[in-house]
Computed example of a mutant assay.
Amino acid sequence: MARANLTPAVVITAAADLADREGFDAITLSALARRFGVQTASLYSHVRDRSALLDSVHELALGELADRIAIAIGGLSGRDALVALADAHRDYARQFPGRWAALQRPAAASTVQSEAAGQVVALTLAMLRGYRLPETELVHATRLLAATINGFLALEASGSIAHREPPAELSWRRALDALDTVFRSWPTEGNS
């Protein structure tokens, strides 16, 4: 690819693709420079440094995940929306392991304030509001949801739950059934 075709978006997407192929830690400016056939210094006009590049991959992944969640949960509520949201996360993690790894790192302040992060949060809260949870409880419910999804997917990615019957798929469904039960019976702030 010629240097003239490089843009921040092209560099960030190439970094995300590299992470999916070789792992998140493989993202370096020198690896990208080799991929583009340019000197590493040439990339600094498109990204500030490696840290900024990693933050940009994180934000890219958030945006892609938000798009998938929006499509998945559109028109759904309750358990159906919960399952669709969780499955969107799981499918994304499987299809894009490097991008998923980017989502597991601490977010920079700019990433937290990004439109992409806001979309993921808004979609998650919209799904949880379908359970009629008190507004004061939404943060707690969101944390439980994130811990369940991310914990299960981390165990699945490491292969640590693949060695025993029944299959992990059944455990995934049971976990989502349990979350549905918890969200339907969530205590109100006054009785906690």
Rank of each mutant, 00 (worst) to 15 (best):
T181H: 05
A26G: 04
A52F: 00
G63E: 09
A2D: 15
T148F: 00
D20C: 09
A16F: 11
T13F: 01
A162K: 09
L43Q: 12
A52D: 13
E59F: 02
S192Y: 02
L103D: 08
R143A: 06
A126I: 14
Q113A: 14
T13S: 06
D177G: 01
E156G: 00
R174D: 04
P167E: 10
A102P: 00
Q39V: 03
H58W: 06
S56Y: 12
E189F: 02
R35L: 11
A88L: 08
I161C: 14
T111C: 08
D91L: 10
M127I: 07
I12G: 10
M127A: 14
R68I: 04
S158L: 11
L145Q: 05
Y131P: 15
V120Y: 08
D180R: 11
R184G: 08
N191C: 10
V120A: 07
R99Y: 07
R48Q: 13
V139L: 07
A168G: 00
I149N: 14
E189N: 01
S171C: 09
A19W: 08
L153E: 14
G78F: 05
A109S: 06
R173F: 02
I71S: 02
D55V: 08
I161P: 06
Q104W: 01
R79I: 02
A141Y: 00
L155V: 00
S45P: 01
A84F: 05
T40L: 09
V47A: 11
I149D: 15
R3C: 04
Q104V: 05
W172I: 04
G78N: 14
G98L: 08
E169C: 08
L128F: 14
L176K: 01
V120W: 11
A178H: 08
R143E: 09
V112M: 03
A154G: 03
E22C: 03
E22V: 03
A66Y: 08
L179P: 00
A116W: 11
R48I: 03
A4V: 15
A16V: 07
R3P: 04
M1Y: 04
Q104D: 09
H89S: 07
A147N: 13
I149H: 11
L76R: 12
D20Y: 03
A88M: 09
L176N: 07
Q95T: 04
A122R: 15
T7M: 15
A146T: 02
Q95D: 13
G23I: 03
A178Q: 07
Q95A: 10
Q95S: 12
G118P: 12
E189P: 00
A15V: 04
R79K: 12
S192A: 05
S171N: 10
L18Q: 12
P166C: 15
A84H: 09
L76C: 06
A109F: 04
I69Q: 11
L123I: 09
S56V: 12
L82N: 09
A107N: 04
L18R: 12
A31D: 06
I27W: 00
Y131V: 15
R105C: 13
R21I: 00
Q95M: 05
A52W: 01
S30R: 06
S114L: 07
W186F: 15
A141E: 05
A175K: 01
R79N: 11
S77I: 04
A66V: 03
G159Q: 05
G159W: 02
G98T: 05
P166D: 15
A101T: 13
G190W: 13
N5Q: 15
R143L: 06
G118C: 10
A61F: 02
R174M: 06
